[in-house]
Design a protein around this nucleic acid. Sequence first.
DNA 1: GTCTATATCCAGATAGAC
DNA 2: GTCTATCTGGATATAGAC
Lengths: 225, 225
Amino acid sequence: MTKNKIRDAEETKSIILKAAETLFAEKGFAGTTLRQISQASGASGPLIIFHFKDKQGVYDAVKASIMKRYLDADSKTHPADDSFDSLIRHVLSSMFSFYRDNPTIMRLANWGRLEGDYEPWPGEAEWHHTYREQIRLAQERGEIRSDLTPLNISIFICGTAHIWWENHEHFMKHVLEEKNRNRTADDFYFEQCLSFILQGLSIPVTEKKGKSHAKRTAKNKAKPR
Amino acid sequence: MTKNKIRDAEETKSIILKAAETLFAEKGFAGTTLRQISQASGASGPLIIFHFKDKQGVYDAVKASIMKRYLDADSKTHPADDSFDSLIRHVLSSMFSFYRDNPTIMRLANWGRLEGDYEPWPGEAEWHHTYREQIRLAQERGEIRSDLTPLNISIFICGTAHIWWENHEHFMKHVLEEKNRNRTADDFYFEQCLSFILQGLSIPVTEKKGKSHAKRTAKNKAKPR
DNA sequence: GTCTATATCCAGATAGAC
DNA sequence: GTCTATCTGGATATAGAC
């Protein structure tokens, strides 16, 4: 910022929020200082307080602005739910691209959980709910196993996607061999993930092999949880 | 603490560490103050500095003590690796009990990742390595699919376990129906998890059904990553 | 709306008595 | 080995000029 005095409150606030989002994502609430936000945004400390009341106010505003962005983006997704196969592919791929494009989200959510910010991110619960409902319908149609609860299935799916992006940096730096540390690593993991999930949810063909893992079949309905 | 002066360095240090572990797990490094550790442990601030040099020293000591505890517990596990079935059951169940018994670990690990503490927790890398090796062997024996890489398989397994415990509180409070909010919820998830994973990794019986998820078979060896 | 100057508080760390 | 007293820095937040 040059010699200030832009006198456009909305613009100022948005600049502050952008800087604050980056910083909060990077260092969390306790680890971020108003000074840093001030320096990164070019607005003086008192001005930030003026617009957002206090540090907590800045944080809340950041969360709100993220949710807005998220919901805006999500509203144009959720396409045809024909087969479970295409549903799962869609869900997984939209999670992947969301995580890829919004690296701050994951960190902010993690910070939030750790810092005891349990206020629900609005919209998230509903999203999960409709998602589970679609799983249930696929079970009713006999497309996938019915002995696993929709909730657990959704947890499995989220878990495999989540852990990849949560540890993305770590995987890229320390786990993958050098030649595989490129953009296609994500795609490769995605494909393997999809293949694993689809098989894990498919209806077992026969009860052959004495192994325990073919024991449950679709006729053993799980009690709803 | 009464009127101090216990003059037992080891005892004092261990008391301080215990208090510090709780606090760091709860609030992270930046969010925890020496004063709080002092108050919670009964040792004066300067005494903590005396024993651990500085705040960072306390943090490092906490991590070291946790790793010691972890390795001690883990050394008496790792039993017969006969079948993959029993291996996976063992790995998953030891992860579950570890997370259940050490709720601070998960939080500390998450804090560490967020706060940029990328120093490896000693022993962890080796553990993952031997684990992946066992997966690879099971693939060679033809017990499980070979088109998924051992690394990805281990990520899937960790992911499904991880996400459960990472969100355990949230699941218990807001997601599960009330009647299911008890200790057996963990066991139920565990069983479903196991069943899902084993089927997802099993070798497909036939190529029937036109669906895409039966396309890959064991003969399509994945290139090692 | 935005700044400078500053009050106030509390953090981590030290000095030195016991 | 442990304390009390204290230094120093940096944090949030306020006062008040422009």
